[in-house]
Simulated assay, not measured.
Amino acid sequence: MPLETRTARLLLRRWRESDLAPFAAMGEDPEVMRYFPSRLTRTQSDELAGRADRLFETHGYGLWALEKQSTGDFIGFTGLAPVPAFIPGPGGLEVGWRLARSFWGQGYATEAARAALDVAFGRLDLEQVQAITAVINEPSRAVMERLGMTATAEFQHPKIPVGSPLRVHIRYAVSRAAAAQACAAADLTR
């Protein structure tokens, strides 16, 4: 399993100490964390980065730190992780991402997630990858749909309080063939 991979504009790599401060700033940004139950403290942010990076040792895949190749800026993360056991449904692997606000709207999330799906379907030889988000998270749902993912089920997130607008989540899934078709269609529109 590669410890890093590249796209046209991004380097997906293991985490570095220098990523922790900008990642913590993301976790404190109310807009970045809008679709999460709460913002992150610096300790929580550092722990999340550590868990994201350790996935590579325990599973051979993980959540890469994202670096913009042209500037070397840390812009967020993307990658693959096991669907948490407390999430209702079939389990498996999910693709996920989170970007600093200044990098939104430039196609980085879709570009990085496509690279993660390439690893999932090519190197890990998976047949399907999932993604989950709050139903109201329209920006992430749009990325999922650009990736060729389709909505498969809504569920009540067991760790989000009843009555919270974030409680209702949606699961998306994409097959190897659907991901390839979505990627080819995107290449035709460029």
Rank of each mutant, 00 (worst) to 15 (best):
R114H: 13
V119I: 11
V162H: 15
R16C: 08
F56E: 05
K68F: 08
E154G: 07
K159S: 13
T7G: 10
T41Y: 02
R101G: 05
Q106S: 14
M149P: 05
Q130R: 15
W97R: 00
D19T: 02
A134R: 03
W97E: 00
G89Y: 07
L12Y: 05
P165N: 14
M26I: 02
E47F: 00
F23H: 03
E127A: 11
A184W: 06
Q156S: 15
T152F: 03
L93E: 02
A185W: 05
E138H: 15
H169P: 01
S70F: 06
A25C: 09
R39F: 00
P90N: 02
L63R: 12
L66W: 00
W97L: 03
A153L: 02
M26E: 02
L188S: 15
P88A: 10
A182E: 05
A100C: 10
L20C: 10
E67V: 10
L66Q: 03
P161F: 12
R146N: 14
S164C: 12
P30H: 06
A81P: 11
Q69V: 14
Q130M: 08
Y108G: 03
A120H: 07
V83E: 07
T41P: 00
R6L: 11
A25L: 07
A180H: 06
L12W: 05
F56A: 11
H59P: 02
A142E: 13
A100K: 04
A109K: 03
Q130P: 02
P82G: 14
T71N: 10
S18A: 14
R14D: 05
L147F: 08
V174D: 00
L99F: 06
G50M: 03
Q106Y: 08
H157W: 04
M26G: 05
Q106I: 05
R190I: 08
F56Y: 15
V143W: 00
T133W: 08
M26F: 04
A109N: 00
S164E: 12
S18E: 15
V143R: 00
T43N: 02
T7W: 04
R39E: 03
R176K: 15
D73S: 12
F74G: 02
P22M: 12
L20V: 03
